[in-house]
Amino acid sequence: MSAQSVIEAKAVSKWYGQFHALKDINLTVHKGERIVICGPSGSGKSTLIRCFNRLEAHQQGDIVVNGVALHGKMTNVAAVRSNVGMVFQQFNLFPHMTVLMNCMAGPMWVKGVSEKEARETALKFLERVRIPEQANKFPIQLSGGQQQRVAIARSLCMQPAVMLFDEPTSALDPEMVSEVLETMTGLARDGMTMVCVTHEMGFARAVADRVIFMDAGQIVEEGTPDEFFSRPRHDRTKLFLSQILKH
């Protein structure tokens, strides 16, 4: 394993009962790399990135994150998770806490950072996602796009080595998609290592170093955005792209 790789997946397989959800996945994410995973629904893309912080367990193969192997009985899963930021489709902000507290909770409770320092970090990242003025509101008082940006800020406050995005714009109104994508593009430009499951092909084209196409639990095609969009090799990819770019 090279020192540069943040996530390394080797021959990963996962089953839900009889259903073979991930089939022999090999993927290495290098430091600073931006990877977009796309594919039809049910293709295993969300399952894959949820394996990267062990929200799901894989049954075969190896996943190494920040040098820690995610094996069956791991005792330091919290340490791995606190180093991997995750943004969910449904935001999953903590509704009983203010926006500021959502951002402060992680550093304070997991890393033992002082309240003052946590507040400064939180405000810094809320500034970065351009909603510092909403700090004292509750999540429900914010629009979907704002909530998702808070969710991004909340993850950033943990200063993670890699950010995982699980369809971050799929639950948003069209108008709010762009504000979230802009935030993500900004992150990418600052050199954050990112793995994004998304259907936003414009974002993939503009930001990704590599685009990965999954179908039926397998990685079908992998390449730079240019290769991927201009010269897709597999028929399944061509079909998918023709469907998704039709409108």
């Binding site: 912080n53 929200l55 919290a78 340490a79 998770r81 606190s82 180093n83 991997v84 995750m86 969910f88 449904q90 999953n92 902000l93 903590f94 909770a105 992680g106 409770w109 997991v110 909340r154 993850s155 943990m158």
Partner: peptide, 17 residues
């Protein structure tokens, strides 16, 4: 909602926390 557990655990919070 399950998502609350997932968000919390994915930030490294333990079960009790």
């Amino acid at each position: 909602d399950r998502g609350q557990w997932e968000a919390s655990r994915s930030m490294g919070f333990g079960f009790a926390l």
